[in-house]
Each structure stands twice: as structure tokens, then as C-alpha cells.
């Protein structure tokens, strides 16, 4: 397992990236963010991962702020994300306006029946939940979204992403690695 950036990957030129993952509790919002965080760890970058916490974790809305940078991170709270990953309609409605101009918005179009209205950002409709159901990857819409996010932003080297996924899955849940890998590959190919 390589933890080094791929040859030719120039980390120094990568600006700080901020991500906001948002959705229902139980959609794996925090887990998706954790994979990005581990990617930062493996590439020895500065990073922060901050979940929303409290009652909203139980069935309500969940969100997770992740920042990757090469200098120490000030506020870990992502209020203007470079990339928003919205997994349900309330999240899209709540956070669309916060995306940095020129940023990206990924949304699960299987669950969200409205379209984004911003024109100054790139938007990606990803039918992640539908694909997950079709491909026998139930519960892995989050990882499919993450694959798409990586494909568009290249927030880390390709093999770092694979290694980060492995690190984010605890050994006692090793049987989940294979479907997670498939989900990631599926998202990357979209």
C-alpha cells in the first residue's frame, strides 16, 4: 500500500480545499468525510474534519466539514465550501448558497427532486442512491458520490484514495472493503 503521492503529483501547487458533506443521519456523511481526511493524512497534509453533533445525528440532518491544506488550518468549520456534497433536499436548500463562487456542487439526484439554481458554480447531478440500489451497493451512495467528487477535483493522488478507503474501514468491518471499493470505482467512472 503506497502512502506517497503519485509521481508527478505536485502537492505544493494544490490550494487549500474545503468540503462540506451534508445529508440525513445514516447516509454515511461522516464516513465520506473521513475518507477525505485520511487521504490528507496519508499525504502528510494539514487537515481538519469536523462533524455536526448532537440530536441531529439521530435521524435528522448531518453534516461534516473537511479541509485539506498545506498550512495550519484556522477554523475547521467550513462555511464557504469549495465543494458541497448534498445527499438530500434539505441539505441542497440549506447549503447551495454557501458554495464559493467557482466551486462545485454534487447532489444525489435520485433523492433530490429539485435542481440547483446557481450559475456561478459547477453542478453535478449524481443518481447515487439509485445506482447503489441497482448495483447491489445499498448504503454506499456516499462512497459513489465520493468517487465522483474525486474524479472532478482530484483532491488526492489516485492510490492515496484507495489507501484512505482502506484506512477508514476498521479491521473488524473488513468484509465491507470490497463493496466500498466497487462503489468508489463506480463513482470515479461517472
Amino acid at each position: 500500500m503506497s502512502t506517497k503521492p503519485a509521481p508527478g503529483f505536485d502537492r505544493g501547487s494544490t490550494p487549500a480545499l474545503s468540503f462540506l458533506f451534508a445529508g440525513f443521519g445514516g447516509q454515511g456523511i461522516l464516513f465520506a468525510g473521513k475518507i477525505v481526511a485520511y487521504a490528507g493524512l496519508l499525504e502528510d497534509r494539514e487537515l481538519s474534519w469536523l462533524p455536526s453533533y448532537g440530536p441531529e445525528m439521530r435521524g435528522g440532518t448531518a453534516s461534516c466539514s473537511v479541509t485539506l491544506a498545506d498550512t495550519p488550518i484556522g477554523s475547521p468549520l467550513v462555511t464557504e465550501p469549495d465543494s458541497l456534497i448534498a445527499m438530500n433536499r434539505p441539505s441542497l436548500e440549506k447549503f447551495e448558497a454557501t458554495v464559493k463562487p467557482g466551486g462545485r456542487l454534487f447532489y444525489d439526484s435520485s433523492l433530490i427532486d429539485i435542481a440547483p439554481t446557481r450559475t456561478d458554480i459547477a453542478t453535478y447531478a449524481v443518481p447515487a442512491t439509485g445506482l447503489a440500489t441497482e448495483q447491489d451497493l445499498k448504503g454506499l451512495a456516499n462512497v459513489i458520490m465520493l468517487g465522483k467528487l474525486w474524479h472532478e477535483t482530484r483532491f488526492c493522488a489516485a492510490d492515496t484514495l484507495d489507501a484512505a478507503l482502506e484506512k477508514a474501514i476498521p479491521p473488524r468491518k473488513a468484509q465491507l472493503l470490497e463493496p466500498n471499493k466497487r462503489a468508489l470505482a463506480l463513482g470515479k467512472g461517472l
Binding site: A37, G40, L41, D44, L47, W49, L50, I73, P76, L77
Partner: peptide, 10 residues
């Protein structure tokens, strides 16, 4: 505080 308690950093 809750921010420092809940956040992850390397």
C-alpha cells in the same frame, strides 16, 4: 470546547 473535542486533526 465542543469544536476541539469533536474535530479530527493529525
Amino acid at each position: 470546547d465542543g469544536l476541539l473535542g469533536q474535530m479530527m486533526e493529525p
